[in-house]
Nucleic acid binder design. Structure first.
Lengths: 212, 212
DNA sequence: GCAATACACTCCACCTTGGAGTATTGTCAA
DNA sequence: TTGACAATACTCCAAGGTGGAGTGTATTGC
């Protein structure tokens, strides 16, 4: 199914949580909160919102601030039905796109500085995710978050994102240490260390055949 | 920059690691090893390989297996230069696309079963990543892997991927427990648990809890 | 009062996907 | 040895989707 079919349903979901949204608020929400797990171009939001109205899943309303127009959207009963249907549908798989890791994969072909730049980018990516948590988390703790009634699910999302971020940062830490060690190690030591790391990672999931 | 510019460089990187590759081998490599951090359509591989030849970064060679033709590629000196230039370039940010998490985000609008299906998908995604590690890891340990000389960087990649996978699976485990608990909890208890979870995540990075 | 920033969109060139289409060659088993 | 099925080896392209430029107006801070 189209990516934007999902985006349309994401918008529908937001509309279901609150009486009215302007397109700008919708884009802001997607930029700020959902960016890290459902990143989409802003032009699509405008597009999909209109599409929702076309299909009768939402109603739009024009208003003005001085000369400047604005459109606000609200969900319709059909929209709520559609949303429930979609939620009952099987989810799409998760995908990760990590160009820095590609650079590490090809690391022997570049310089040590290249490798470190890639690792640093991963760390920055993790920090960027954390930055949102730093804002959103305390809002929930203090009860000032806009969707306090969504606390329980938002806690799950925050848990995902902070662990994802932590994974990135911790990997960057470990990798930098490994890179530092390389300069002091013989080939043999480096190989031994690499094998130990691989073994470590495999060992941490002993039930390798658990998938059967 | 175009995504496929990166893809072209990824191919160039593979070509730099071995004398000759057929397009099929290239696609297989991207499907099997690089899929989880640089997922790309197969038709693009064919496209980009041809582009590389057009720009003088690779040479192609036709051969036959019976009547069936095949093209193999090898890197050129210009190609090696290009690859080094690219590796010295700043990496693009990491992105995650996790539709199941979007469903959790909107979880209050669906059923408990919907939520569990989303969590299950995340677990499956983690297992899928682990499955590659289960094959590739032992190959390196036993010395039967095709690029044993790349051991050190591959260990870093494997470390990233197994931690990513583990993050997904552990999150699924925690989330399922939370979901189980919901059925036995009062609203108050649920809120308390959610707040505790948020606090937990914030605390794990002290810089975060400093915020008001 | 002026600059910067936020709001409110539209437009579209170019990129990318993913699946269908078309073959031939290996492999395993009945 | 024949037939089925998987693997190899591509091409083609319709239907998305992106991201940034373009065009304004309103508000905020200094």
């Amino acid at each position: 199914m189209r990516r934007t079919a999902t985006t349309a349903n994401a918008i529908l979901g937001l509309l279901a949580l609150r009486r009215e949204w302007s397109t700008w608020e919708l884009t802001k929400q997607l930029r700020r909160n959902m960016r890290f797990f459902w990143p989409r171009a802003e032009s699509q939001i405008y597009e999909e919102a209109k599409g929702l109205v076309g299909k009768g899943f939402a109603r739009d309303r024009q208003s003005f601030t001085g000369k400047r127009g604005r459109t606000t959207y609200a969900i319709s009963p059909d929209g709520r039905k559609q949303l429930k249907r979609w939620l009952a549908t099987p989810p799409k798989p998760t995908t990760l796109e990590c160009e820095p890791l590609l650079r590490v994969f090809l690391g022997t072909l570049g310089t040590d500085a290249d490798l470190r730049a890639a690792v640093a980018q991963v760390r920055a990516d993790g920090e960027a995710v954390l930055d949102v948590g730093r804002v959103v988390g305390p809002e929930y703790l203090e009860g000032t978050a806009p969707f306090q009634d969504q606390l329980a699910v938002r806690a799950l999302v925050l848990d995902f994102l902070s662990n994802h971020a932590r994974m990135l940062i911790d990997w960057a830490d470990r990798s930098e240490e490994v890179l530092d060690a390389w300069s002091r190690q013989s080939d043999k030591q480096r190989t031994a260390a690499s094998l130990a790391s691989i073994r470590d990672n495999l060992d941490r999931y002993p039930a390798m055949s658990a998938t059967t």
